[in-house]
Design a protein around this nucleic acid. Structure first.
Lengths: 151, 151
DNA sequence: CTACAACTTCAAGTCGACTTGAGGTCAAGG
DNA sequence: CCTTGACCTCAAGTCGACTTGAAGTTGTAG
């Protein structure tokens, strides 16, 4: 497989593939001239990387999970730690979602007069709800077909 | 109030306060010499900003929500859109968390042999689970360990 | 054989929300 | 009055994960 084939089959841009290779996350099996040649296993690795990223691991954390060239070596403890972390995020987001939902429908003339809203504000101010999470405008996300209408 | 007082009462670093002022998110009521002077309402604004950030709004999105100098002007539609967005994230994270939890306990010798794990991988690869969200090691988050108050 | 699209390398740019550092000013306590 | 440390400004740096661009090379269709 050449790089364009990998791009086609994985959806990962060539620039990213080169970047991943440079970081040691994937490997090309050789070159044909200058051109990289990959074998099919790279697709599995890429899927694993995508999974790791989705779970919230950084590339540097993911690197060691990808075994040398056979099975991945994933530390189960790390997985459950991450699961706990996600669980915390979920609780935070849920609180936030419910708060927003309420605020959106609240009959108070101004949000500042809604006690629930003020309470939420207070919690955020003290950091009790947790730091914001950043999301990318990523293409994959748009692939899900949803694009917020505010530019 | 001088800036150090605001720092003390809000927990927001002075550098951030200057940055927020520069971006038009907060205002100082004047100067004493060179030194900024704030009044108490800035604390409420900061709380509002924190809330917005936690909800996942960018500073640029938050700016217009903060009314000129009175009540905030928050578009309720925007709130419920954000709530929907959060809801989606929550579902994704939940799927992820459960998948990780399973993988952590799965008896398969290698994760690659666990069908659930492979399925999760496949979904992430296609972007069906959504993009990763970045989190900071934030000090605020560690400052407060009571998240039980969120229900 | 030749054109040329597709590949290559390497450096630098991007994005958001801040932080950091250098160098300067000044209000207040002694 | 003098010191000092809190404050100021402005430019540049940071972080992670990539993307972009310039400039050069090459496999391959025609």
């Amino acid at each position: 497989m050449d790089i364009s084939e990998v791009v086609k089959r994985s959806g990962v841009p060539a620039s990213t593939l080169r970047y991943y290779e440079e970081k040691g996350l994937i490997r090309s099996v050789g070159r044909r001239g200058l051109h990289r040649v990959f074998n099919g296993s790279v697709l599995e690795r890429l899927a694993l990387i995508a999974l790791g990223r989705t779970a919230g691991f950084s590339l540097d954390e993911i690197a060691p999970m990808l075994g040398k060239e056979g099975q991945p070596e994933i530390d189960r403890k790390m997985l459950s730690e991450k699961a706990d972390e996600l669980d915390k995020s979920i609780k935070q987001l849920t609180a936030m979602r419910d708060g927003l939902r309420h605020a959106a429908e609240c009959s108070a003339p101004s949000h500042m007069e809604c006690p629930k809203f003020r309470r939420l504000m207070g919690l955020a101010a003290v950091g009790a709800i947790g730091e914001p999470s950043r999301k990318k405008p990523g293409k994959k996300t748009q692939a899900l077909k949803k694009k917020s209408s505010l530019e």
